[in-house]
Design a binder for these strands. Structure first.
Lengths: 223, 223
DNA sequence: CAGTGTGAAGTAATTCACAGCG
DNA sequence: CGCTGTGAATTACTTCACACTG
């Protein structure tokens, strides 16, 4: 549903792309020099076949009978995800959630750097949160272009989210992580939007606590 | 993958459950008294057939040729999700992220109430964040049982997350929303774990900004 | 006759099963 | 021999197409 079925290159399942960062993290944390698909699956919660199939979409990185070289595979995954180049993001909305994201060191890693933050509130503009100084919202377009930022993070109230999404898109952002509880950029086919909707997530969990009164085999699921 | 294939009741796709809260929100926000599946789909970003099929798993709530009664359908969905009863959650970890979640009013709605919060840091224990007073971590089991809380929210550092997850599970929680960047409760089949991993989400977006240099039709996707 | 409800068809993702290779 | 890589089988999910009904 996501990529053009361009001839030549096989289309990569979306689900595969979402698992790659988990594999990468497990590899980076490991002190082993080699790992089998079974071990990598164990660490990430996926089956060994799943791991092998995901990786096989991009090439043959393993050694039969042995497994995968940890540093080499990590490098490959970083390349596949585009993390071998610098990837810059900007965050809009330095409220409670935006502030928490900026302070969460894991979030702005060396892989994807949150390089600027914006807010409308003059009381937070100018303050330093994490590694960035909050700038006024008017600077958004100028700074996105200046930085060459390709990812936008929307952490503004619902009413402002769509306008912010469209401004980010027009400024050149190609992907948006949206925390606002509304659909944004419905009319922007050139940008990929992933939504993280915390309230919806909680409500979905309510279903599982009511519907699972017996010992039915419950399951771990991501995102 | 989620429910026991119990005879009689058709198994509900997991994807359906995750869309129901979005439908519910759209219905609750609307001032219309009736809505068609097309309108509801427009508001939530899904197709009309998808909406109809999702709802049809649980019964025939619409009127042919007309659509759905908004308040009645909202009530049905709330019942399906188990939101017609009080659903209580507890949050563990009142750091930056936990604090942001507690202050985010949408997160603790009348539907799912975050009724208690815990932390190890004596400096935050006793402070009021949002509507709750932060309690010492030792109170966790006692308070979960006392409240009858069935959902746990894990917002502690990676190193502490698995232990917290297991304590929540042993205390009686049936579902966990995990924000820690680690796999938790692998050995707890009786609890449903949903993971929200902010860093992985950003890394996955990196793929879409590199792989979409042409005007391939990009797509909005949830969670 | 407009829009629901639903089998059937189609598509996507996962799991199986095993050949192939180091 | 063990583990990878991969077609084939299976399962899950979505879209189509249309009968049905208020």
């Amino acid at each position: 549903m996501s990529q053009v079925p361009s001839p030549g290159a096989r289309r990569i399942p979306d689900a595969t792309i979402r698992r790659l960062p988990a594999y990468l993290r497990a590899l980076e944390r490991s002190s082993l020099s080699r790992m089998t698909s079974g071990e990598l699956g164990q660490l990430t919660g996926f089956s060994s076949e799943q791991v092998r199939k995901d990786l096989a979409y991009f090439g043959a990185f393993g050694t039969r009978g042995v497994g995968y070289e940890v540093p080499a595979l990590a490098r490959e995954i970083r390349r596949i995800l585009g993390l071998d180049r610098e990837v810059l993001a900007v965050l809009v909305g330095a409220g409670h959630l935006g502030t928490a994201l900026l302070r969460y060191s894991q979030f702005s890693s060396q892989d994807v750097q949150v390089a600027a933050a914006f807010d409308v509130d003059p009381r937070v503009v100018g303050t330093t949160i994490g590694r960035v100084v909050v700038e006024p919202l008017e600077h958004l377009e100028e700074r996105v272009q200046e930085l060459g930022a390709r990812i936008g993070i929307v952490a503004v109230p619902a009413g402002a989210a769509n306008a912010v999404g469209e401004r980010l898109t027009r400024a050149g952002v190609r992907a948006i992580l949206n925390f606002a509880p509304v659909t944004i950029c419905q009319a922007c086919p050139e940008v990929v939007v992933h939504n993280i909707d915390l309230a919806l997530e909680l409500q979905a969990l309510a279903y599982f606590v009511t519907v699972t009164p017996d010992k039915s085999l419950a399951v771990e699921r991501d995102l």
